[in-house]
Design a protein around this nucleic acid. Structure first.
Lengths: 99, 99
DNA sequence: GGGACTATATATAAGAA
DNA sequence: TTTCTTATATATAGTCC
């Protein structure tokens, strides 16, 4: 989708990687929004740049999406996956609560 | 991107909405993957169709992404946002633990 | 880090199977 | 609901500010 064809593999040049990230990130966020509107879907998108910056989009609010996701993952009933999810939810809860 | 131009608003026809969802969902998941590879970014994408089916993509694993997301939201330190996150995380934790 | 500017590569709307 | 085809709308690679 541009002057030249590219292969999907990590872009070595740090500067180009940043530029491409900026462009594609915007495109991805836009598409996520369009999908949610056009198809009445609930979407949650989280992106961390290689430098650690956070970008996000959620059709409703991320809390609701994560909440629903967690529940959906629990339902399949596999005792295995269920406990795994509960373990890490609990783990998050037990993180330091200091302001 | 197609035979005709469209406006971004909910597609009324249920059948077309489903077809469009199927196509765009695939495109979105593909783009999410490309972004993560090309730019070495951590990506988490969750999509619920209007019929409730779940589709997802995560460059590492959703648990790690949500975990990192939660932490990133806590750090900004705004006492306000911090407590809000803790509130709903706690809420999730308090959900019924019955298998 | 964003804009702006093309030329191209891609995604995808329509339609049919 | 996925698959295939084809015409078009879009996204975006490369480059300069």
């Amino acid at each position: 989708m541009g002057r030249g064809k590219i292969v999907i593999r990590r872009i070595d040049n740090s500067t180009s990687r940043q530029v491409t990230f900026s462009k594609r990130r915007n495109g991805l966020l836009k598409k996520a929004k369009e999908l949610s509107i056009l198809c009445d879907a609930e979407v949650g998108l989280v992106v961390f740049s290689s430098t650690g910056r956070l970008y996000e989009f959620s059709s409703t609010n991320m809390k609701a999406v994560i909440d629903r996701y967690t529940n959906a993952k629990e339902e399949p009933g596999a005792a295995n996956s269920t406990s795994e999810i509960k373990v890490w939810q609990r783990k998050i809860y037990l993180l330091p609560m200091t302001p």
